[in-house]
Nucleic acid binder design. Structure first.
Lengths: 240, 240
DNA sequence: AAGGGCTTGTTACAATTCGAAAGGAATGAG
DNA sequence: CTCATTCCTTTCGAATTGTAACAAGCCCTT
């Protein structure tokens, strides 16, 4: 038997809504379209799950009982690489503007048609994914990363080769600079395999990368560790 | 005077709509928000202009006289790196779905509020260019909190790093200043786990945060505790 | 206004998480 | 087959964070 309607490399969509019918309706439509889905009724459950999984798109209902939905959206926007789509009964323009301003990527008003939600989810995935492959060179903080040659060049032209594993980490950072990259997201993108002590391997990769970037271990300027949360890459990145 | 509302490195937004009033309304709102704009009444002009300039976001009205708007959107999506936002009077779900499937990044229905258009344009720019990110620094009482760097800066520029846990508390306060933050709410947002003696952990976090803010223990000026209720953060907060 | 009970602040310590060095399996070139 | 490279695993030390214990403060009752 091999009926994985949802293979593990399909995009993962989370649904956060306290109404079971809506969760079901959305999950059905999205599964139909070939996405993996995970539903949550409460924000706390959702946040707990975020520590172990990294969704690609998050559907968030603002009318949650247990938490301020907008604050959650704000934090998500900053700490997660996922696209955020607000689903709300509040239809005022001001609500939409503040929601988008806080970091949401889209805002859908209830009642909605599942087909439109699917279309908007697809639109978000298109942007985040297609952009990755376009360019293979990035500049940041005096460095230039050539991904096709696996080489780092400093401001004076000195070249430092980097390995494939190091490149994966570096690319992940350069694609979402100045944003917290959770360990879960790294694991999902890199190892994929739910390693028990794969965490250590990530540490090693990052350690190596830091060395090649000539970071001061006591005071890293580019790759900063956020204890208990993940990493954040500082520095302005420009892809070419 | 020096009123370059639109410096050349500001994002460029094109507006393609045959109604002059709408072009004007959109251009005004977008210029106000600091964007450069270029308006076009006909698709042919627009396409000619594309050869010499690369916009960051294209607003496209589907009801054009001289060409099929959807075909234009499709070609744009394939050939241009710009984000595409459809503006249309056609409000059917099917219209929106096909518009999005063809490569549009967003779909706004007429009549619209310019403020929402600006917010949606910003949302698109956030994703395509890494600049213009969500606000993540706050000023208050001489301090500046840089949440992406996890650093507090005082009025003289001295930096004090803060940890993730401390940042969560600080962010919570800065998101609702001069309002009572109940202990229960803090617990939900921070610990999540319905702590039995997690209360102490919050106290500790706040204690450490107060230390970094150089509060006088006997007379806290910023984080005031309301006995039996929670805390209140005094001080004018401005997010940037 | 004084004392008791509850809430909150602070300090010290323990548990958890992370960094870096060293050793070993897998892959590939010659 | 041997060597080299890469990358994972192990291990130990360092940093952050939760927990426990106790001191201090607030509020209410008497």
């Amino acid at each position: 038997m091999t009926p994985p309607e949802t293979s593990p490399d399909q995009p993962l969509i989370t649904i956060l809504d306290d109404e079971p019918e809506i969760r079901l309706m959305l999950a059905d439509a999205l599964n139909e379209a070939g996405f993996r889905t995970k539903g949550f009724a409460r924000a706390t459950e959702f946040e707990a799950a975020l520590k172990s999984t990294a969704p690609d798109v998050c559907l968030v209902d603002l009318g949650l009982p247990d938490k301020d939905g907008l604050a959650l959206v704000h934090r998500l926007a900053l700490e997660s690489g996922a696209a955020i789509i607000i689903i709300s009964g509040r239809a005022q323009v001001q609500d939409r503007v503040t929601g988008l301003e806080l970091g949401a990527d889209d805002y859908i008003i209830k009642p909605f048609d599942p087909a439109e939600v699917v279309a908007r989810v697809r639109a978000r995935l298109r942007k985040t994914r297609s952009e990755d492959k376009v360019s293979d060179t990035a500049r940041f903080a005096g460095w230039t990363a050539h991904f096709e040659r696996y080489v780092l060049t400093d401001s004076e032209g000195v070249e430092t080769p980097f390995s494939h594993a190091e490149g994966e980490v570096l690319r992940l950072f350069l694609e979402s600079p100045k944003r917290l990259v959770s360990r879960a997201r790294m694991q999902e993108i890199l190892g994929g395999a739910a390693g028990e002590s794969f965490d250590r391997a990530m540490d090693v990769r990052i350690s190596r990368l830091r060395t090649k970037l000539r970071e001061d271990p006591k005071n890293p300027r580019l790759i900063k560790t956020i204890y208990g949360a993940g990493y954040i890459f500082l520095g302005d990145v420009k892809w070419e």
